[in-house]
Write a protein that binds this DNA or RNA. Structure first.
Length: 555
RNA sequence: GGCCCUGUGGUCAAGCGGUUAAGACGGAGCCCUCUCAAGGCUCAAUCCCGGGUUCGAUUCCCGGCAGGGUCACCA
């Protein structure tokens, strides 16, 4: 058969460059030894999730700790997946978490010498190579319809055979010249398939950067490389793009492990040196007693927006992911509390081999810690950013008064000098936490535990004597005085020593005041809270509580 | 079902033939204390199972088992 003629009939494009030309257009990158070129290659659905961030972080760290390049390529070979604005959304989402690309789709950079970075715009390159493979007899046209393929698959399933297009099931593999041209003449749609020369009986060892040595079975599937619309499949585009974009390390989810044999064969027939691979394990979730991969449909926490809306501190999400990526990250951070996480010696081969269960508790802990490290002003900016985007109208209004909020935060985050409090876990919770400082939303349900008469007496006694000028100890002495006056022990130790002698202790009196002023039995330093509220508002709250107090029996 | 990956406390995990089997989150308790948070101290909790190899296996080998992934003209 005249393969040259066949190639021309199948791929008649006149404006194709000869394949070798592309080696000149996309020469090897001049990078220092050891520099890794990595990439994130999402399809443009716009849905960018935690798994993507996890993978992107591994890519970005690997590239930037080795002095390499991290680029963005859009795998838009499937028309159905395309969503408007998706690429910008990917870039924006990752930037929110502090991850930036060096080159690629929609990235402004003078490095963009390996584009275009949209696969649809690279059609000629793929077609040029597909044509070459046809000429070499390594690829062939297939006219099977989807129905036919479905039927074959059913048969294979029924006989418990491996499904797919291989061996005797590869019906179009040995079509005669006559058969091919007559179908072409009849305008039958066709795909281009790889003529695989592999044998599943052959197994070889392959070194994955994460998994270590793994066994791979040779591919024997005549996989589609060009779809009937002339656009390549993922496999074919992957081999060509990662070769010409000069990717050195392909980091991708382990769900790709099973198609590795195809990729190895593709690189071989194309005459390219394959990149190194790092197959990352998936993020898991507990569901009904067993682990399973985090799912887009079932798990809202897979979405990156979930973390933005809940107001986790973005760097906390990144650091949490770092603890999964390289588990010695936490210890490193303990030793280098002031260092930027980017200074951590990230290594791809330190990544775990098994799927990690996503741990919200741990994330929350890290988020609390990260927020506690902020200055009051930084924290204000962070909370305000959240309130403006996700908060209620009241929240937004509250954040107009920066001076007031910063004062509150100085208290809620802890005074400087001492260790910071860690009350704020996420913006949503933090905004809610300080809401009692605002009269328009302060609507407490007083849960007094003390008897009503004690509540009233304590409140009025304290109010009569309150002076906002008092320092902490003067303030507390007054609370003690109130306690003593209504039959409560002024010292906790006295009460503990002799509980029968008192109705309670000074801490119970403090609780009454605290509930009256904040609506909650728990809060940071009450004396300071009263100072922030000011005398007038404090007294008003004390009075309001006294009037509406529903006394309860002591438990 | 075939093929591949993985298997250390509740979770993330260190560990590379001999260890009191780190650490962190979470849990329990104590201290501190006007409550909470923070902090300090303490405790409970782990090597999937069965065979080998070895003086000795969490560690090496084999076989189970369990979990996960994948079997498209989707990526």
């Amino acid at each position: 058969m005249d393969l040259k003629k066949l190639a021309n009939a199948l791929i008649p494009d006149e404006d194709l460059l000869p394949p070798e030309e592309y080696e000149k257009i996309y020469p090897p990158r001049s990078l220092p030894a050891g520099a890794e070129v990595t990439r994130l290659a999402p399809s443009p659905t716009g849905f960018i999730h935690l798994g993507n961030l996890y993978s992107a972080l591994a890519d970005e760290r690997t590239a930037h700790t080795t002095g390499g390049v991290f680029y963005l390529r859009i795998e838009d070979t499937d028309e159905k997946r395309k969503v408007e604005g998706a690429v910008e959304s990917v870039i924006r989402s990752l930037r929110y978490f502090g991850i930036n690309f060096d080159e690629g789709a929609e990235i402004v950079s003078d490095l963009n010498a390996y584009g275009p970075y949209y696969q649809r715009q690279r059609a000629k390159i793929y077609r040029s190579y597909a044509k070459k493979l046809i000429e070499e007899g390594k690829a062939y046209p297939c006219f099977c319809t989807e129905e036919e393929l479905d039927k074959v698959r059913e048969e294979q399933n029924a006989e418990k055979l491996v499904t797919g297009y291989y061996g005797k099931y590869a019906k179009c593999r040995n079509l005669s010249e006559e058969e091919i041209y007559s179908r072409l003449a009849a305008d039958k749609p066709f795909v281009i398939r790889l003529r695989s020369s592999g044998d599943v009986a052959n197994k070889t060892s392959f070194c994955d950067a994460i998994k270590g040595d793994i066994t791979v079975t040779e591919n024997d599937q005549d996989v589609v490389i060009l779809k009937s619309d002339g656009i390549p499949t993922y496999h074919f585009a992957h081999a060509i793009d990662d070769h010409f974009m000069r990717t050195t390390l392909v980091i991708r989810g382990e769900e790709w492990l099973s198609s590795l044999p195809i990729h190895i064969e593709l690189f071989k027939v194309l005459g390219f040196k394959p990149p190194r691979y790092a197959h990352t394990c998936s993020l898991m979730k507990m569901d009904g007693g067993t682990k399973r991969k985090l799912s887009k449909r079932k798990d809202p926490e897979l979405s990156l927006d979930y973390y933005r809306k809940a107001g986790y501190y973005p760097r906390a999400v990144v650091k949490y992911l770092m603890t999964i990526l390289n588990s010695d990250f936490e210890e490193w951070e303990l030793k280098n509390p002031l260092a930027d996480y980017r200074d951590f010696p990230f290594r791809i081969n330190k990544m775990g081999k098994s799927g990690a269960l996503f741990d919200l508790d741990k994330l929350s802990d890290i988020s609390r810690t990260e927020i506690s490290k902020l200055s009051e002003e930084e924290c204000y900016e962070f909370l305000k950013g959240w309130a403006d985007e996700f908060g209620s109208p009241a929240d937004k209004a509250h954040f107009e008064d920066k001076e007031y909020i910063v004062k509150i935060l100085a208290l809620v985050m802890g005074t400087s000098g001492k260790k910071r409090r860690k009350d704020i876990e996420r913006a949503e919770q933090g905004v809610n936490l300080i809401s009692y400082f605002f009269d328009d939303v302060f609507s407490p349900e007083y849960g007094f535990r003390a008897a009503r008469e004690d509540v009233e007496k304590a409140l009025s006694l304290f109010a009569a004597d309150y002076d906002p000028q008092d320092d902490n100890s003067a303030w507390f002495s007054k609370v003690k005085k109130v306690a003593a006056a209504i039959g409560y022990a002024a010292e906790t130790s006295e009460y503990k020593a002799n509980p029968q002698a008192y109705k309670g202790s000074v801490s119970d009196v403090a609780e009454i005041l605290r509930i009256a002023v904040t609506g909650s039995p728990n809060s940071p330093d009450l004396c300071s809270i009263m100072k922030i509220l000011g005398k007038e508002r404090t007294l008003r709250r004390l009075e309001r509580a006294a009037n509406t107090a529903e006394g309860g029996a002591r438990s």
